[in-house]
Deep mutational scan, measured.
Amino acid sequence: MLDDRARMEAAKKEKVEQILAEFQLQEEDLKKVMRRMQKEMDRGLRLETHEEASVKMLPTYVRSTPEGSEVGDFLSLDLGGTNFRVMLVKVGEGEEGQWSVKTKHQMYSIPEDAMTGTAEMLFDYISECISDFLDKHQMKHKKLPLGFTFSFPVRHEDIDKGILLNWTKGFKASGAEGNNVVGLLRDAIKRRGDFEMDVVAMVNDTVATMISCYYEDHQCEVGMIVGTGCNACYMEEMQNVELVEGDEGRMCVNTEWGAFGDSGELDEFLLEYDRLVDESSANPGQQLYEKLIGGKYMGELVRLVLLRLVDENLLFHGEASEQLRTRGAFETRFVSQVESDTGDRKQIYNILSTLGLRPSTTDCDIVRRACESVSTRAAHMCSAGLAGVINRMRESRSEDVMRITVGVDGSVYKLHPSFKERFHASVRRLTPSCEITFIESEEGSGRGAALVSAVACKKACMLGQ
């Protein structure tokens, strides 16, 4: 009897593995994704193909990295998701002549009506938060230079001027797309009239992360975010950046690689679950690469896999709870928690219980395998993109072996128990001629924006502006 049951459990697990095998990517698959990513990057950089390229390769006008001589107080704003952060950054000489960066910050959550109302409502709310922060720190009387981390696709015309191309991540505030974001912020500050600010720089969160990590390690020339969304930036040779005049030196390019796949480059790798996630998203047909990796989508992918296993009578005796059938019910943090389970399955059992399920031991094991399959594919897909960037940098610099540091931020990278190990191992397999160091950014977005502002202020002083 026991043997029969054991055989049935083994057969069930084997069927589960057959279904989950769809998520496995072979090294040849990853090399294919990497080569296609490089081709799209090239198209994004070139003037004649930029418009139709899915990977936009947006110039950021960040050319210099901090040298350690900029000092002063800077205000930093960070808008990239449902939370908005205001930070005071003091850049100065530390002990023994070292450079020191001290920060104080406060988080504000953005109400739904500000995210989806008008641009005026959104930026009025942001300036209200700045006003509140300055009151708390008794700094209303000071006109501070301000660095703005704005983590949406922007076409820069200068370091302090950028046109919002399109909202992502659930934002829909009308009247912002096609307009200068810094102008919208300046107008809102003017409307309030109770404080003055000098907006000197606007950067993407990947750029802010790279600059913040450069402060720790001067070989950091790539910034990457794996959180709600997924994106990367890197220092490109100016001669390859056709959208900006000049051939000397390097400029940081914001790849906006989340949109890779929007022209069909990933079609052969998309599964039924991916198509369902895409169809029910706020932007169907867009940001397809990001939807395979980002935390906004990972939990939902797992939920759809679990429903398939229920329908195949391989999980929960073929019956799903009402909660499990509800879109968004299986949160991405559950994926991390399930994979963090120590082996007694308590954590998995508790999560499934909150979803109205009474799982068996085998159910718990199957749910864990589903989570591992989805998150491992995410790590491997992400590795193909980064390997594409790094191999490109090595080739354009004609280096036999390139040493490089990548600064990384984002909740999936930082909080998932195995993502970074799987990701690092896969990147290294795909970049055999590179020695890569990964560092995690601390308060990256805010500190990085302030350091970019410090560079901009120093330049302005040198130019006598």
Rank of each mutant, 00 (worst) to 15 (best):
E9W: 13
A10Q: 10
Q24T: 11
L25F: 14
L30W: 09
K31T: 13
M34C: 09
M37L: 10
K39S: 07
G44I: 03
L45P: 05
E52S: 10
E52L: 10
S54P: 08
Y61V: 04
Y61S: 05
Y61D: 06
V62R: 03
S64N: 15
T65C: 15
E67H: 04
G68W: 04
V71K: 15
V71Y: 12
L77V: 04
G81S: 02
R85F: 02
L88N: 11
L88V: 08
V101K: 06
D113Y: 13
G117F: 03
F123Y: 00
F123N: 00
D124R: 04
Y125F: 06
I126G: 01
S131I: 06
D132L: 09
L134R: 02
K142Q: 07
F148C: 02
F150H: 04
F150D: 04
F152E: 02
I159G: 04
I163R: 01
L165Y: 03
F171H: 02
K172V: 03
K172W: 01
A173P: 07
N179T: 14
V181L: 08
V181C: 03
L185W: 01
D187I: 04
R191W: 03
R192L: 08
V199A: 02
N204D: 03
V207N: 00
T209E: 10
M210P: 09
E216P: 15
D217F: 11
G227R: 05
E237H: 05
N240W: 12
E245P: 14
G246D: 07
G249Q: 14
T255D: 01
W257Y: 13
F260M: 12
D262H: 08
S280W: 13
S281T: 11
A282V: 13
N283G: 11
L288A: 08
L288F: 09
L288R: 12
L288N: 11
K291N: 00
K291V: 01
L292N: 07
I293L: 08
G295E: 04
G295I: 02
E300P: 04
R303P: 04
V305K: 07
L306K: 00
D311K: 14
E312C: 11
H317L: 13
E319S: 11
F330G: 04
T332E: 01
Q337M: 04
S340W: 11
G343A: 10
Q347K: 08
I348E: 07
L357D: 07
D363H: 06
A370T: 06
C371E: 12
E372S: 13
E372T: 08
V374A: 07
G385N: 01
G385H: 01
N391G: 11
R394A: 13
S396H: 12
I404H: 09
S411C: 04
P417G: 09
P417V: 14
F419M: 01
H424D: 04
L430M: 09
T431C: 08
S433M: 07
E435Y: 09
F438L: 07
I439S: 09
G444W: 02
G444R: 03
G448S: 03
L451K: 07
V455I: 12
K458T: 15
C461F: 05
L463S: 13
Q465M: 04
